[in-house]
Design a protein around this nucleic acid. Structure first.
Length: 264
DNA sequence: AGGGTGACCTGTCGGC
DNA sequence: TGCCGACAGGTCACCC
């Protein structure tokens, strides 16, 4: 579910409401991707100072520590005063005096991790290798020899671009996903950066994609039916030139592209 | 060090 | 209807 726009929409939908809240307890269900890293009692009576985002991680600043949240492939957050009792796939509940933040995550690739701060080895392992923010000044894929699609996804050059928006951005830039990153021309690299920014910021402005069932922390759907140009459109006519969209596998992930609009 | 692969886990969908 | 394989929005540990 969550690529950068969905994570950021989620953050914006509850950050202000939870800031200032006093934590009463954290209740965990089935194991998530990583263990919390500390006994839940250290969280009690801590105050939430704010919620930031780095890549697809949410960083919750506490009065004495940092709580990292990741939504994995299938995670979503709800924040409300009166949530129904936890269901089968609700695996983390942060109870505060202003409401409960709940992680719903059927596949359990998500995580909640405690760290003293960002330099804590626990946090550094997760955040330390991350590339630049895609909405920031620029990124430099040209040092990599791997296919550009996989470089976008790897997260160590630029963060936040997931499988859907990687295909969409490469279409917008007119670049074939199999193109080796180091063979991009200067203009192509510039167009790609522009395309990534535009694709992500458009989805963000529209409340995140509703490709499957994305909802913000109020449980509201994005009011944007993702009108993908290529993603999940194998065999359908390109919306620009009519050529059938092609699909292939790269690193065990599906890629979609227009063989006419995207130059090898 | 970069690049390729397998792993984690559950749900859904299409085909027989 | 049931069963089975393929696939799903992420990213890490592990090899070479």
């Amino acid at each position: 579910m969550p690529e950068l726009p969905e994570v950021e929409v989620t953050r914006q939908s509850f950050a202000a409401a939870i800031t200032g809240a006093r934590i009463q307890g954290l209740h965990l269900g089935l194991p998530l991707r990583w263990p919390l890293g500390v006994d839940t009692t250290v969280l009690r009576d801590q105050t939430v100072l704010g919620v930031r985002r780095r890549g697809k991680y949410l960083l919750m600043d506490l009065s004495d520590g940092l709580l990292l949240w990741h939504l994995g492939m299938s995670g979503s957050l709800r924040f409300a005063v009166d949530l129904p009792p936890p269901g089968k796939h609700d695996h983390a509940n942060l109870v505060t005096d202003r409401g409960t933040l709940r992680l719903h995550d059927p596949r359990r690739f998500g995580a909640v991790v405690f760290a003293r701060d960002e330099s804590d080895p626990v946090a550094a392992k997760l955040l330390g290798g991350l590339g630049v923010e895609p909405l920031g000044p620029g990124f430099a894929p040209e040092k990599r020899r791997a296919p550009i699609k996989q470089v976008l996804l790897a997260g160590d050059v630029v963060v936040g671009v997931g499988n859907i928006y990687a295909s969409e951005a490469l279409f917008a830039a007119g670049i074939r996903p199999t193109k080796r990153a180091h063979l991009l021309t200067g203009p192509q690299a510039m167009r790609l950066h522009t395309a990534v920014r535009e694709v992500l910021s458009r989805a963000l402005a529209l409340g995140g994609s509703t490709l499957k069932d994305f909802k913000n922390a109020h449980g509201e759907s994005g009011y944007f039916q993702l009108d993908a140009m290529v993603y999940d459109r194998a065999g359908l006519p390109c919306r620009v030139c009519g050529t059938p969209i092609k699909t292939l596998r790269q690193g065990q992930r599906s890629t979609f592209y227009c063989p006419h609009c995207q130059k090898p």
